[in-house]
Amino acid sequence: MNQPLFLQPVFQERIWGGTALKDQFNYDIPSDQTGECWAISGHPNGQSTVVNGEFAGKTIGELWNEHRELFGGHTSPVFPLLTKILDANADLSVQVHPDDTYAKEHENGELGKTECWYIIDCDEDAEMIFGHTAGTKEEFVSMIENGEWNDLLRRLPVKPGDFFYVPSGTIHALCKGTLVLETQQSSDTTYRVYDYDRRDAEGNTRELHIEKSIEVTTIPHRNTDVQPAVEERDGVEVTKFVKAEYFTVYKWRVDGHASFVQNQPFQLASVLDGEGTLKVQGESYTLKKGNHFILPADIETFEIEGQLELIVSHV
């Protein structure tokens, strides 16, 4: 085959969503409360579909099950990663995710959820909730029961270009006015700790998962300082943000012409800005902002030309 797999994303409406996915990426979104673009996904709750080549019309899940050779024969029972773009038009709930062991036991075999965020854009005074102040489980429970949210939750300012690594067990929330590319384990398990007592269109509050949250939260909070490593070579600046248990994530800033060797079983790529051309074995593919694609195992070398910025990940 030796072809990249370009993908049609799936969009998810959320109480906190907005129109940034249409405004910034020109996506055809289902409503003015669209919170998530599941850009590269093999998760049953929203599967991306291939739009080019011999596998056009196939979902990532189908390819994972029927053509594992495209992914270097990787042994995970499910496609292991999920790339999203999130439009936090309002504050997300304060939440925490379980690890693999807990999720397998309590969530029907679902993977746990370690994730990371690249801040694409945000309001000038934007912030996020990352971690908590409790020193012990007893203190954590007491502060939740007494509604001491301002004292419990740690807030950090954010700016475009920031990167955050969010292991399972970390209390977190994106806040109003942030647009984020998220790379995560392929999981849709979220435990809500606090949702600002807000109500949906029917006047109902959303379900909270206090007991499970208490069971899975890391106490005390552990900081995850990201130390990006930047490498410059002909035509491209490669920033490695994180190399962790479940994924490695990079930013590629291409300026001109760059050649690449595929040294992973497969790679996931999202074009965040600019435009250019991807060349694979004499074939050219147009790249523009909002494109998402997989470079499968049988692509050994490739070239990118143009002025563009991509977020790239692999297992």
Rank of each mutant, 00 (worst) to 15 (best):
G18T: 06
V51K: 14
N150C: 00
V166A: 13
D151V: 05
G131V: 14
G306Y: 11
S31D: 10
G135M: 07
S93F: 09
L287S: 14
E107I: 11
K289S: 05
N2E: 14
L268R: 10
L92A: 09
D23R: 05
I119R: 06
I120G: 03
I171N: 03
L153E: 02
P80G: 05
Y191F: 13
V315P: 14
T133P: 03
F247I: 10
E300G: 09
K251Y: 00
G109T: 02
L81E: 04
G42Q: 05
G109K: 03
D200H: 06
V280C: 11
I311G: 09
N150I: 00
Y246S: 07
V271I: 14
A126E: 10
G109R: 09
A103V: 00
Q3F: 12
G177N: 10
F6D: 01
L153C: 02
Y194A: 09
E138N: 14
Q227D: 12
W117N: 03
L174E: 04
Y191Q: 07
D273E: 15
G282N: 04
H74G: 07
L308K: 13
A173L: 00
E145C: 01
E54M: 08
P4S: 14
H106V: 11
F266P: 02
E232P: 00
Q3Y: 12
P220M: 05
I304N: 07
T277E: 15
W117Q: 02
Q12L: 14
R222Q: 05
Q24V: 14
E107M: 12
P98I: 04
I120F: 00
A201S: 07
S48F: 12
Q185V: 07
Q95K: 10
G35M: 09
L156G: 00
L179C: 02
Y194F: 15
V226F: 07
Y285M: 06
H172R: 09
S168P: 08
D123V: 01
D91P: 08
S76Q: 10
V158I: 01
W64Q: 09
F302R: 10
A88E: 04
S31T: 14
I119P: 00
K243A: 11
K240D: 09
Q185C: 07
G73N: 15
E62Y: 14
T114S: 06
V226Q: 04
Q262K: 11
L156W: 07
D151W: 07
W252K: 05
W149F: 01
H209Q: 09
H74A: 13
Q262Y: 08
K159R: 15
P228G: 10
R206H: 05
G282M: 08
D100T: 04
D121R: 04
S142V: 04
T301F: 05
